[in-house]
Structures are given as structure tokens and as C-alpha cells.
Amino acid sequence: MPKWAMAIDLDKCTGCESCMIACKVENNVAIVDPEQAQAGRVMYWMDMMTAYESEDTQVVRRIVPKPCFHCDEPPCTVVCPVGATYRNPEGIVAQVYHRCIGCRYCMAACPYTAKVFNWYAPKWLEDSACRPNPDVSLRMSGVVEKCSFCSHRLQQIKEIADLEGRRIEDGEYVTACQENCPTDAIVFGDIEDKDSSVYKLSKSYRVKRYMDDLDVKPKVFYLSRRTTE
């Protein structure tokens, strides 16, 4: 059974935010009014986190792309009262929009603040050039949603691979953010496969994991030469 993981190379990342845009379009993430977004209701599955830290005498601004971390032991799924969020055998933490009752307990329990909520009925662009992606289900008001590692792509690739009777090759299943990254800072793949590039990166000395001490085992990790976290 593969286990999907993502490496984000902060030394390569330019902070161009194209991963955010790609994700938003690919996954039909709703467009939120500016004033609502200002009030903290902006919806991104792949968010851009700005952190400030001081190095010697200067303050450094760091920009970190932040998807859902798809923990191997997710704190969000254990608290869900109806089983609307769960971790599937391939390690993807999934959300069942049609079962979610909107109690937002998973959001309160997530240490990475990775989930977003549909405070109003979601809206999408009406433009004929930009229609919702037919492969991703549209959400309704009052449910929690989050990054799915573009699992709709996995379903398609899995079908093809099954038909041809082979394993999914490394680099065959790509997420939208990875595909759109101009500097190839995002690497995605099966971390159980010893030949995959994400596995090799996971052995790098540059690996940083957010909140490793909580032992929730996030499957999204960062690569950075900087010593401070």
C-alpha cells in the first residue's frame, strides 16, 4: 500500500503563490468576498504562511506554503463525532462533505490550523472560461473542507494503473500545487517506495517537520538549510 507524502523545499520556494492559485482552481475552493476574507474567513486549501524571525540583527520574513499535513495520527479525525473526517489506508486524511455536521471540532483540534469552513454558501466564478472542475465535488454551506492531496487525480491514475496491471510510477500522481510550481519546490510521491524522490528527500539533512514533538506524524515536511525552525 503506498503512502503519499509531500516535500516542500523552502530553499527553492520563491513565494510566488502559484501553488495557492493552482489549488484554488483545481479543487473548486470557493471565492470569498474581500471583507469576509479580511474577517478571517478566507478559503485556501494551500495557504501561504508568513512567519517573522530574527536572525542576528535582522528580521527575516519567511513565506511557507501550508497545505493540510495529512498526519499519520491525525488529531482531527479522532474527535469527529460522525466520522466525516478519516484517514484512509493510503494515508490521505479525507473529508466527507455530505456527512459533516459542521461542528468544527476538527478545526479546533487541528494543531496546524489547516481546515477551512464554509461560513456562507460558497460562490464560484461565473466566468465561462473558469468553470468548476468536474472531478471535484462542490461543497455546501456549513461544512468543513481541506486539502485532499488532489485525491481525485489519484483515482484516475489508479484506474489506469490497475487496467494496465502495474504500480503507479513515481511522478505519475502529481498534485495541482506541485504541477504549477515554477521552481519544482514541491515534490510529491509514495514515501514507502524506496526509489521515489520524496523518499530520498525525506532522508535529507535539511528535513524540518512542524511540531514534531506532538508526534502526530505529519506527511508534509519541509526542506530548509536554515537552522531555526
Binding site: V78, P81, V82, R99, C100, I101, G102, R104, S141, V143
Partner: peptide
């Protein structure tokens, strides 16, 4: 957020929560 699905708590409630 979805009071209409309240009965999910009884129909598919997870006692671990």
C-alpha cells in the same frame, strides 16, 4: 453548520469522539 444533519450523531456517531 448543518443542523439538518444532526441525526447523523445518532445514526453514524463515533463513540470515540
Amino acid at each position: 453548520g448543518r443542523p439538518d444533519r444532526m441525526m447523523n450523531l445518532l445514526e453514524s456517531g463515533r463513540l470515540q469522539s
